[in-house]
């Protein structure tokens, strides 16, 4: 990066031909797609059988943030994908939005299923990315920008989306997946419409002396790694059958209807297990394996 800037400066100043051609960059697009019951899934699709009880369910929301997207070279080293900057991608964070506000969905119309960016030309064979929003990222000019705990009304898109804000936890929902099971979600004292998965950092504490968030005991970010992945031919499948495999989406035993990342919520162990995340025990942090063992994200065509 620095060499590029230096060459650029020199080139514009006096030495138009002195620098070797900028190491050629390859434009890369990484495609994401939603599947359920082995089929592509959308907001308007007919109900799909999901969870332990195979409850016929429609989609209400499917969005998640990814960051630190890297291509893996043949020698195992990885190279960061430099993201194009637009309303869906800011610094090294991208929002994957697989809902279109139609059918059973209530979100925005826009969708974003393809992350775009550049890597130095090279021979790559794998892909790694992290689900979630990082605490901070660094701009091209070296400025550190707080991201996960930034104020939604002061930050660039796509971190300004209120549906993905987790204001109660002073952060972001990393993942927002919501289902509408037929017959609703039966709880001890009532029935509600939506079974919810909200993933995000929990156990966060602020510093009243400066008004900033300082630490979260459970970061809950998922590192996904595919040793073999060809962006030209393959896509990252976000598989809701895998996500809900151990859950009964027609019922809820307590806490939020579904799992909002609370370790006390009886619905969270099954969801976290599928995501390859440890669930904090008694509020104490548990180290997450890197990469995570999960089939919720997998390689497909």
């Amino acid at each position: 990066m620095h060499r590029g800037i230096l060459c650029g400066l020199l080139a514009s100043a006096l030495l138009p031909l002195a620098c070797p051609a900028e190491e050629s960059a390859s434009k890369i697009g990484i495609d994401f797609a939603l599947t359920a019951a082995g089929q592509p899934w959308t907001c308007s699709a007919p109900p799909a059988p999901l969870g332990r009880g195979q409850a016929p369910s429609r989609l209400r929301d499917a969005r998640f943030y990814v960051h630190d997207i890297r291509l893996i070279r043949h020698d195992g080293a990885s190279v960061a994908l430099r993201l194009a900057q637009n309303e869906w991608q800011y610094l090294d964070v991208a929002l994957i939005d697989l809902e279109d506000g139609q059918g059973g969905c209530v979100g925005n119309r826009g969708q974003h299923a393809r992350v775009t960016g550049e890597v130095p030309a090279g021979d790559y064979r794998g892909l790694q990315f992290t689900v979630g929003v990082p605490v901070s990222s660094t701009t091209a000019d070296g400025r550190v920008v707080p991201l996960n705990h930034s104020n939604t009304e002061q930050i660039a898109a796509p971190l300004d989306i209120q549906a993905m804000a987790w204001n109660w936890q002073a952060g972001r929902k990393f993942m927002k997946v919501e289902l509408l099971p037929e017959g609703g979600v039966v709880r001890a004292e009532d029935t509600v419409k939506v079974w919810t998965v909200h993933l995000g950092s929990t156990g966060c504490v602020g510093n009243p002396a400066n008004g900033e968030i300082v630490a979260c005991s459970s970061p809950n970010r998922i590192v996904v790694r595919f040793d073999d992945f060809d962006p030209a031919r393959q896509r990252v499948l976000f598989d809701l059958s895998a996500l809900f495999e151990g859950s009964d989406v027609g019922r809820d035993q307590g806490g939020a209807a579904g799992c909002m990342s609370s370790p006390q919520d009886p619905e969270c162990p099954a969801i976290f297990r599928q995501l390859g995340l440890p669930l904090a025990v008694d509020g104490a942090p548990v180290a997450a394996p890197t990469p995570a063992t999960t089939s919720v994200f997998r390689v497909g065509s």
């Binding site: 979100g107 939604t152 602020g206 510093n207 968030i213």
Partner: peptide, 30 residues
């Protein structure tokens, strides 16, 4: 809530909160 340490951040909860809805502001109507 030990995570809410400024009025500016606390206020996002009643304005944009969805569970429960207080002021009812969201991406679509803001």
């Amino acid at each position: 809530n030990p995570a809410l340490v400024s009025l500016e951040r606390q206020m996002l909860v009643p304005i944009f909160g969805e569970d429960p809805v207080e002021m009812g502001i969201n991406d679509r109507n803001k």
